[in-house]
């Protein structure tokens, strides 16, 4: 018996510490959160690799100007779901979808969807920093050039704005001509964020953006996310529950391709509605 008491005590301590972290940032009340109209909305969305379901029957909404974290054990379909939002999963052969997924009111999986527009509205940051083997300038100008921006001065302006928004400008302003691969890992990841911002999206999808970085670089990226959330809808997939608690306002818990629970971060960590969620956030599972 004493062991179980200690265990319970430890559990509640853990939750408290996590929630206290999240409370610092997510101070707005629950009613305020729900009044906004969603930017991304999934209705009974399922994604199949061949006949195997990646995610099943997801219905959820992402709201503007806030950070939503998706957590869950490996292989639970959180990345699959994230990658379905801007249809980057199309690269994989033999996939199919069921249900609807709306971004800014348009059905993404409609036949007439303009993929270029969709992907420019929904920027993406990947797990591993993946700058092109080009100069810093060319990396960021890649998106705007696709949109048809040709003038050098305009491009210069966009590059500067994006780098400033990604908090990288001070570090690289003198060598924009240098190869992006010469930057450190954290800088490369911020460059990738800047590159995504350069197309002026309203949504940013982040697929474990800090998993390949050291704690200091991670801290910088988290600060950056905190600053960006006032302007963008950010969806972040993360393995680190501390990170989800620190930066997100809402959290969704996925397990085995299904959405188990979705609510404000405070509720998910302090007051989970489902047993599975509680097990996961307390570290008893996964």
């Amino acid at each position: 018996m004493p062991t179980s008491t200690i265990k319970n005590q430890a559990k509640s301590d853990h939750i408290d510490s996590v929630v206290s972290l999240s409370e610092k940032k997510t101070s707005s009340s629950k009613s305020e959160l729900d009044c906004q109209c969603p930017v991304v909305k999934a209705e009974n969305f399922s994604f199949y690799y061949g006949s195997k379901a990646g995610v099943k029957d997801i219905s959820m909404e992402f709201y503007p100007c806030s950070v939503t974290a998706i957590i869950g054990p490996s292989g639970c379909g959180k990345s699959t779901f994230l990658r379905s939002i801007n249809r980057i999963n199309d690269l994989i052969p033999n996939t199919s979808v069921k249900g609807n997924l709306f971004v800014n009111g348009h059905n993404v999986y409609d036949k007439n969807t303009n993929l270029v527009n969709l992907r420019q509205q929904v920027g993406m940051v990947f797990q591993k920093p993946n700058p092109f083997p080009k100069s810093i300038f060319d990396n960021i100008a890649y998106g705007p050039k696709l949109q048809g921006v040709k003038s050098r001065s305009k491009l210069q302006q966009i590059v500067e704005e994006s780098l400033k928004a990604a908090a990288l400008w001070k570090e690289v302003k003198d060598d924009l001509k240098k190869s992006a691969l010469a930057l450190s890992g954290g800088q490369q990841q911020r460059l990738c964020i800047a590159r995504a911002l350069a197309t002026k999206p309203n949504t940013l999808l982040m697929d474990e953006p800090c998993s390949a970085l050291d704690p200091i670089a991670t801290g910088k990226i988290e600060d950056l996310i905190g600053r960006l959330q006032s302007d963008y809808t950010i969806v972040i997939v993360t393995h680190s529950m501390q990170q989800a608690a620190r930066i997100s306002r809402r959290t969704a818990f996925f397990c085995l391709g299904e959405l188990i629970e979705y609510g404000s971060t405070v509720d998910i960590f302090r007051n989970p509605g489902k047993k599975q969620t509680e097990d996961y956030v307390t570290g008893r599972f996964g």
Partner: peptide
Amino acid sequence: TYKEASLGLGA
């Protein structure tokens, strides 16, 4: 990842 980055930017 190069390809994904480029496609992710709308190319």
